[in-house]
Amino acid sequence: MSSAAPAFQLQPEAAAPVVDMSGVNKEYRRGEQTIPIFQDLDFKVSQGEFVAITGPSGSGKTTLLNLVGALDKPDRGSVRVFGVDVASLRPAQKADWRARSVGFVFQLYHLLPFLTARENVEVPLALAGIRRRERRLRAMTALKITGVERICDHKPSQISGGQAQRVAIARSLAADPDLLLCDEPTGDLDRHAAQEILEVLSALRANHGKTILMVTHDPFAAGYASRAVRLEKGILMTST
């Protein structure tokens, strides 16, 4: 039996990027004034990356995150996430897509104040039509991953900012999306709480293979990312 090597070996195909922004233009209008945010922006994020987007206020960090999360749409260019041109989706399709594919973590947590931590985590699961028992189980698992299962019956007003952000991360994880979009997740927290949140995010990437795109103005937070991108006046300045 011949053991000759094949004439050529297939090279493993490079994985398609999770986020692929190409030739993106975006501007805002304020009265008569037009404020350009991005001009021909190209940006890619690969599977399993933890990318920090840093930069001064007004540089377009949050706008970039909103474009990826289909909360905003570009004036020109394409934004593909998991191969889907999110800008071309209709509003209802965008909502459905967000529910399935991305988890959001906000600076101000945006937990529903009248629900407990567990119930907050259950909300996206209810949206996905998951039954009550399964919902509770998955919510508790998500809370355990973020280390706040003990405060599952507390309402947002009864817990600290750091705990609230962990609950918010648990909520973003509940529907098991592959991409987490974090907008200044440590912006409202002290250094210690911020460190805990960043460790949770790092663990999510390392242990659960989540792709994380985080906007931050804090170099300390950016230090936890596998890659940091600096935006200045809508232009990607550095990539480390």
């Binding site: 909360l71 529910a99 906000f106 101000l108 973003s172």
Partner: peptide, 16 residues
């Protein structure tokens, strides 16, 4: 307002 926006961000349709 922000509560409703957060619900939309996590996947609730505006109609819902």
């Amino acid at each position: 307002t922000s509560e409703f926006a957060a619900l939309q961000a996590i996947g609730f349709r505006a109609t819902r």
